[in-house]
Design a protein around this nucleic acid. Structure first.
Length: 278
DNA sequence: AGCGGGACCTGTGGGC
DNA sequence: TGCCCACAGGTCCCGC
């Protein structure tokens, strides 16, 4: 499930393949994949890709358009099963390929970039600054975890929701999903059901340093591959080998041996240790 | 206003 | 063996 470390890994692994390439065409095979606020995909033609980066869980390709009205960004939200990658030269169209981009590399060679998405939750958007300003989700995004101070985090946690719910809210902090929220709460020793505003300043500092450490470690390990997720080169990440709680409900806690509990919080499964997390 | 929960979507895997 | 159904979950939307 692409969360911050997975999207960061995709951006870093995709960049060398697409940087300075010209988009010759964008062929949308599944209409709902195009975000409703997107410029027409024909506007992507003759745009040059100059960078691939990440904001929150969004994959952002910076573009130089052929004219001032053209898009300056190709934004991809991978959601559950989206993959943006450059297939091998003679690769077949996949069963779940939703958009095909034909690129011209700086060497003048043709190369394809596929957006595959089994579950079709993912979205692509050809955008510019005006569109970002009109996009409520973009406007509501909270700070990046590495930019967050304990003081700002404290202000954003003044809510009556369980801390787990607050961490999943992209307006509180951007980039966390179910995996890293559960892992960060375990590392910080905080029960996911605790109301966000009930956390002490010591607990908030511990939670912030825990989630920053986990995200750094997960980026270093190229993300977590549960089933679908692969980077732009088709490689799996290895952070799933480091999971302390995610997906381990009913198994024993790796710290104390207690049986891990699995409950639902705001419709999400949450795994935690009743002994280590208070 | 703020929160919880269902809908969206399809592949997978457990149980019978 | 094969079928059915719960589950996976990020975000939007609706209702309380």
């Amino acid at each position: 499930m692409p969360e911050l470390p997975e999207v960061e890994t995709v951006a870093r692994s995709l960049a060398p393949h697409v940087k300075d390439s010209l988009i010759l065409s964008a062929n949308l095979l599944h209409k709902p994949t195009m975000h409703e606020l997107s410029l027409p995909f024909s506007s992507l033609e003759n745009c040059r890709i100059v960078n691939a980066r990440r904001r929150a869980k969004l994959l952002m390709l910076d573009l130089i358009p052929p004219n001032p009205e053209g898009p300056t960004l190709l934004v991809a939200h991978l959601r559950m099963t989206g993959r943006l990658f450059t297939p091998d030269a003679n690769a077949e169209l996949g069963k779940h390929t939703r958009c095909i981009f034909t690129l011209q590399t700086p060497k003048g060679e043709k190369q394809q970039m596929f957006f595959d998405d089994a579950r079709t939750f993912g979205k692509l958007m050809a955008a510019n600054e005006d569109i970002l300003q009109k996009w409520p989700f973009w406007q509501s995004l909270g700070p990046e975890p590495f930019d967050l101070t304990a003081e700002t985090f404290t202000k954003r946690l003044q809510s009556n929701r369980p801390i787990k719910t607050a961490l999943l809210d992209q307006a509180t902090i951007a980039g966390l999903g179910n995996i890293y929220a559960d892992e960060a709460l375990f590392k910080a020793g905080i029960n996911p059901k605790r109301l966000a505003k009930s956390l002490s300043s010591a607990e908030i500092e511990r939670l912030l340093s825990s989630l920053q450490a986990i995200l750094m470690d997960a980026i270093a390990k190229k993300g977590s591959s549960i089933r679908d997720y692969r980077d732009a080169n088709g490689n799996a990440g290895t952070f799933q080998e480091s999971f302390m709680v995610y997906g381990r409900g009913g198994q024993t806690c790796r710290l104390c041996g207690e049986e891990l509990q699995k409950i639902r919080i705001a419709g999400r499964s949450s795994v935690f240790c009743g002994k280590c997390q208070s």
